[in-house]
Computed example of a mutant assay.
Amino acid sequence: MVSTSDFRKGLKIEHEGEPYLIVDFVHYKPGKGGAFVRATVKNLINGKTVEITWRSGEKVKRPDLEEKEFQYLYREGDAFNFMDNGTYEQVTINQDQLGLAGDYMKENAVYRLMSFNGKVISVEPPMFMELEIIETEPGIRGDTVTGGSKPAILETGKRVMVPLFVNQGEVIRVDTRTADYLERV
């Protein structure tokens, strides 16, 4: 249990049987009546953001969340198969459960899976990934690092902007949080 006076951004709580992430919160002390806390929270299962109000000092449950690293094995239709490298246990996840990680699914890469009460609710890709460019316009002589950017399609199907000097077939490092090009590998 956690008290509303211990709320902070990024804290995970349980409300009405579902896990939430605190995005923002404010303590109010009106002239009349008791103090209260109003928090903007994001549902970790469906991604919806709502505002919830509690009396100051009220206790809130912590969710039964478990985060583990799993290796992505292969895709079978709309199902993605992962394996725990420690126990060799395999987990199958639907495409709609992947969220933004679906743009970065590369075989044998390690992903962080979050489960709530034994059910996987989110997949998080590594922060930086090395991916091959499968399609982009060819670089032209004279293109420089500061010259601009062009669209490129990565091996996972994700479309990113890369500098003009980067060519098809090259491997680049991408920040998966922002989909930004970082460097050639």
Rank of each mutant, 00 (worst) to 15 (best):
W54R: 03
M114R: 12
Q95Y: 05
R62E: 04
E67S: 13
N94L: 14
E66N: 04
V23H: 02
A152V: 06
G99H: 02
L182K: 12
L65H: 08
K106H: 05
D64M: 15
Q97M: 13
N43P: 15
F36N: 08
Q71N: 10
G157L: 08
V50Y: 10
G33E: 08
T4C: 09
Y74M: 04
E155P: 13
F82S: 00
G148P: 13
V185C: 10
I172P: 05
E16K: 15
Y88I: 04
A152F: 07
P163H: 12
V171L: 03
G77L: 06
E14M: 08
I93G: 02
D78R: 11
R184C: 02
A35R: 06
G139A: 15
G34D: 10
T87L: 05
Y104Q: 01
K158T: 04
G34R: 12
Y111E: 05
F82R: 01
G139M: 11
Q90D: 04
T178M: 15
G33C: 11
V60G: 00
G148D: 11
L100E: 00
K48V: 03
F36Q: 00
V166P: 15
S122Q: 14
Q168F: 07
K59I: 05
G34A: 13
I172R: 00
M105A: 02
E155S: 06
V162M: 06
D64R: 13
Y20G: 00
K42L: 06
K42P: 03
V26F: 12
V23N: 01
K29W: 09
E170L: 01
R173L: 08
Y20W: 07
T144H: 14
R173Y: 11
M127G: 09
D64C: 04
K119F: 09
K68A: 10
P63I: 02
N108V: 02
M83E: 11
V41D: 03
G17S: 04
R38C: 00
R8F: 09
D24C: 04
L11P: 06
F128R: 15
I172C: 01
R8S: 06
L182F: 12
Y104N: 00
T178A: 14
V145S: 14
